[in-house]
């Protein structure tokens, strides 16, 4: 008769062995003795007490982390709520910039240059682009830094990505229309990643998350979004 291995005895101890092992242990005196020996050892290891943490340390714990907790909770709350509020305003600004560029540029600029000058239009466009890339960067960074676990809930990032897709499309078309090839290429790359995020399952596996992270990191997208976004905003504010 083949006796149970130590690993099988360990599973029996934890109540995770199959019926075959349990039946064998019940019928086999040497295996029962070995199981009893293992159980005595394991029970003794479990009975080793752990002292409570020092009272002084417990009193210091919350004051030590409270500022960072408040900052983390506050930043996330204000950041997201501000972004949701900004969404419709940005879309409206984009629409103004886009349609003014598409249909009114020649006529309005020639007849009423002071009403919507190229400079003011460029200013709105740059600030809008900066804000858009800033918000996109938050989505990308959240996913790029998400820890791998069995399943990750990306529903909040998806909601924002879905809202950003329309704005991104308008900005990309504007950039193409105005001949800004580098911005158009960046927005094109960003749009494809935003679409991937928006169309992913709400709960992604570690493999799916890794794929998304690879897309975000590919061709330095996150870095470019961060740099171009900051530069556009600065440039727009200076105009």
């Amino acid at each position: 008769m083949t006796h149970l291995t130590e690993d099988q005895l360990t599973l029996l101890y934890y109540g995770e062995a199959g019926d075959v092992e349990a039946s064998h242990a019940a019928a086999c005196e040497p295996c029962r003795a070995r199981l009893a020996s293992l159980a005595q050892f394991m029970d003794a290891v479990r009975s080793v007490p752990v002292s409570d943490p020092r009272a002084e340390w417990q009193q210091r714990l919350w004051p030590a982390i409270a500022p960072q907790v408040a900052e983390a909770l506050g930043r996330r709350r204000s950041g997201w709520s501000r972004l949701w509020l900004l969404g419709p305003g940005l879309a409206a600004a984009l629409a103004v910039v886009f349609f003014s560029g598409m249909y009114l540029q020649n006529r309005i600029d020639r007849s009423h240059p002071e009403a919507f000058s190229p400079k003011s239009r460029e200013r709105v466009l740059l600030i809008t682009m900066g804000d858009h890339l800033d918000r996109s960067q938050i989505v990308l960074a959240e996913l790029a830094n998400a820890p791998e676990s069995g399943k990750t809930d990306i529903s909040s990032e998806q909601q924002l990505a879905s809202r950003l897709i329309g704005e991104n499309r308008l900005l990309r078309q504007t950039a193409q229309y105005s001949g800004d090839a580098s911005d158009a290429a960046l927005l094109d790359q960003l749009e494809r990643v935003l679409l991937d995020i928006a169309h992913s399952p709400t709960q992604v596996s570690s493999g799916e998350l890794k794929d998304l992270q690879d897309r975000i990191e590919s061709q330095g997208l996150l870095f470019k979004v961060r740099i171009v976004g900051a530069a556009d905003r600065q440039k727009g504010l200076k105009l």
Binding site: W57, L61, I65, V69, P147, T152, Q203
Partner: peptide, 24 residues
């Protein structure tokens, strides 16, 4: 180790706070 454990408790709660939106 007592000191490691104390540091790790702090680190755990700070990480949990930053990842709270991921708790499903």
């Amino acid at each position: 180790n007592e000191h490691d454990a104390e540091d790790l408790v702090q680190e755990t709660f700070l990480k949990a706070c930053r990842q709270l939106h991921r708790f499903d």
